[in-house]
């Protein structure tokens, strides 16, 4: 028996919105410690790594480890049927063919159940080595989303250059070019508005806008985003999910041909 309950479906709704552009299907691995998803987009350029800890749920029970293949489009449609304040419960038997989503309104007067067929999927894990990154930047997630959106108008790729002084985003295209520089905040009263740079060595990397613009769909999950970069390795873009876990996106860089 697997059962996981969240007092408010809002978190799960936001998680689905944050992955639906990149993934068509994904395996949800459920164990005693929580729910994990690791899945690449079809082109194998980006990877979503989602971790929801069991202690972050209001109720969590997982008698046997389960790998449930889910269609992300269908799951997104189902979550859109829940109000943000509804309690959501995921339920499956051992060796399940289906998963049930149960939404209960706050006043307990409405109870909705949606059953979704699971799909058989080959599990393909990527071993991601522990990496010490040359630059780790924490910045407001809305600012990052804004910069990605603005610079996408100028080119297909954004170059991120990070040094002690700050972080510079730039894009160049047929019609012109653009760049946005953010300095490290001196002393920000509000943690959420801070730009913090932890730099060992300066880095300069180029990434496709299309993926960055999918990652920023996670913005409603967290006020800050963490970007970890080293030369010639994939970017890690991380959003904390309240007290329950995190979503990390990995993105392969563009390199000189």
């Amino acid at each position: 028996m697997f059962e996981a309950r969240l007092a408010q479906s809002a978190i799960l709704k936001k998680v689905l919105e944050a992955v639906k552009d990149l993934l068509t299907e994904a395996t949800f691995e459920c164990s005693d410690s929580g729910i994990q998803v690791q899945a690449m987009d079809n082109a194998h350029v980006s990877l979503v790594s989602l971790n929801l800890r069991s202690d972050g749920f209001d109720k969590y029970r997982c008698d046997r480890n389960l790998s449930m293949g889910m269609n992300i489009g269908t799951m997104t449609k189902i979550l859109r049927c829940a109000s943000s304040e509804d309690t959501v419960t995921l339920r499956a038997v051992d060796s399940p063919d289906n998963i049930i989503f149960i939404f209960e309104s706050q006043n307990k007067e409405k109870l909705a159940e949606y059953e979704m067929k699971l799909i058989n999927m080959d599990l393909e894990h990527l071993g991601i080595p522990e990496t010490m990154y040359s630059c780790v930047v924490k910045m407001p997630s809305q600012e990052f989303a804004r910069i990605c959106r603005d610079l996408s108008q100028f080119g297909e790729a954004i170059t991120i250059a990070c040094s002690k002084e700050g972080i510079k985003f730039s894009a160049a295209g047929d019609y012109g070019n653009a760049n946005v520089k953010l300095a490290q905040t001196a002393d920000s009263d509000k943690e959420e508005e801070a730009v913090l740079i932890d730099m060992q060595e300066p880095v300069k990397l180029t990434f496709a806008c299309r993926y960055l613009n999918s990652f920023v769909k996670a913005t409603p999950l967290c006020a800050q985003v963490k970007l970890s970069m080293s030369s010639d390795v994939p970017l890690v873009c991380e959003y904390q999910i309240g007290e329950i876990g995190h979503i990390r996106y990995y993105l392969a860089p563009k390199i000189d041909d």
Binding site: A157, P234, A252, K254, I255, D256
Partner: peptide, 14 residues
């Protein structure tokens, strides 16, 4: 001109 790499260039399948 830059070329898009894939994650399998960096991470091993396990």
């Amino acid at each position: 001109k830059k070329k898009q790499t894939t994650l399998t260039n960096f991470f091993k399948k396990s």
